[in-house]
C-alpha cells in the first residue's frame, strides 16, 4: 500500500548532492507478445548543480526515463529516488503535489495554453501550489522579465515567435523554484541561434547549487551546455561522458 506521509523535507541538504538516483530501472509497456521494453535496467544519478543531457536515437527510452525521474510515470521494476523520495511508493495526490513543488517541466510541444497570456501561463505552477492569483501573476511577470520578455507579458502564445514561446515555457518551468527541471527536446523546433539562446537561458537561470537540470535532446549543437551527457540506446545507458566532442564522432 502506498504511503502519503513519507516525503522527506524539500529543503536542500548539504550532505545530499544526488537529485535523482535511478537503480535497475526497467519499464515495459504492454504485456505478453506485445510487450515493449522501453528501459532495461537503468542505473543513473543526477547530481544537484549539474545539467545532464540524455541523448540517443529515437525510441531509445530517453523520454520514458525523464518521465520516471519526474514522477509522471511509474517504473515496472527498480527504484528511482527524487531527492531521496521513491515516488512510486507514494499515494497519487501526495505524489502530484510533491511533483508540483519539486519539478519544473519544459515539454517538447511546450503545451502553453493558447487562451492564456504569457504571464498567465507562467503563473500556473504557482497557482497550483496555492499562491493567490495577483501574487502568482506578479511573480510570473518578474520571471518573464528576467527572460527578456518584459514587453511580451500579456501576449498570447499565437502572438509570440518560436524562441519567445520556448522562453515562456522555460519561465513556467522555473517560476516556482523547483529543484529538478526536465526539458524534453527544448530546441527541436528552433534554429541554431535561437536554440543556443534558449540553452543559455536554461543554463544560466536553471542550473543552481541545489537544483539539477535534465535535458533530453537530439541536437548535437547544444551538447556543450551539458556537464555530463548520458548516451542511451535500446533502453540502456551506453556511456556517460563529460566531453561533447567524443559524441560528435559517434556514428
Amino acid at each position: 500500500m502506498k504511503q502519503a506521509s513519507s516525503l522527506k523535507d524539500n529543503a536542500p541538504d548539504q550532505a545530499q548532492t544526488v537529485a535523482v538516483s535511478c537503480r535497475g530501472i526497467t519499464k515495459v509497456y504492454g504485456s505478453g507478445d506485445n510487450a515493449v521494453h522501453a528501459l532495461r535496467g537503468i542505473d543513473l544519478d543526477v547530481q544537484s548543480g549539474e545539467l545532464l543531457m540524455l541523448v540517443g536515437p529515437s525510441g531509445c527510452g530517453k523520454t520514458t526515463l525523464i518521465s520516471i525521474m519526474a514522477g509522471v510515470l511509474d517504473q515496472t521494476a527498480g527504484q528511482c529516488l527524487l531527492f531521496g523520495n521513491d515516488l512510486s511508493q507514494i499515494a497519487a495526490n501526495a505524489k502530484t503535489a510533491y511533483r508540483g513543488k519539486t519539478v519544473g517541466f519544459v515539454f517538447q510541444s511546450l503545451n502553453l495554453v493558447p487562451m492564456l497570456t504569457a504571464a498567465e501561463n507562467v503563473a500556473i505552477p504557482l497557482l497550483l501550489t496555492g499562491v493567490i492569483w495577483m501574487d502568482a501573476l506578479h511573480h510570473a511577470e518578474e520571471m518573464l522579465s528576467r527572460m527578456g520578455l518584459q514587453d511580451r507579458l500579456h501576449f498570447y502564445p499565437s502572438e509570440l515567435s518560436g524562441g519567445q514561446l520556448q522562453r515562456v515555457a522555460i519561465a513556467r518551468a522555473l517560476v516556482h523554484s523547483p529543484r529538478l527541471i526536465v526539458c524534453d527536446e527544448p530546441t527541436s523546433a528552433l534554429d541554431n541561434v535561437t536554440g543556443q539562446e534558449v540553452l543559455e537561458v536554461v543554463r544560466s537561470l536553471g542550473v543552481a547549487k541545489d537544483r539539477a537540470v535534465v535535458v533530453v535532446t537530439h541536437d548535437a549543437r547544444i551538447y556543450h551546455f551539458a556537464d555530463r551527457i548520458a548516451v542511451m540506446n535500446d533502453g540502456r545507458i551506453e556511456r556517460i561522458t563529460t566531453s561533447p566532442q567524443e559524441l560528435v564522432t559517434v556514428p
Binding site: 509522471v72 495526490n93 502530484t96 508540483g100 503545451n111 495554453v113 505552477p125 497550483l128
Partner: peptide, 18 residues
C-alpha cells in the same frame, strides 16, 4: 481539445480534485 493542457496541469501538480 484541452486534454493535453489538463494533462500538462496534472504533470505540473494539479490533483484530480483541482
Amino acid at each position: 481539445d484541452n486534454l493535453k493542457y489538463f494533462a500538462t496541469f496534472k504533470a505540473m501538480g494539479a490533483t484530480n480534485g483541482v
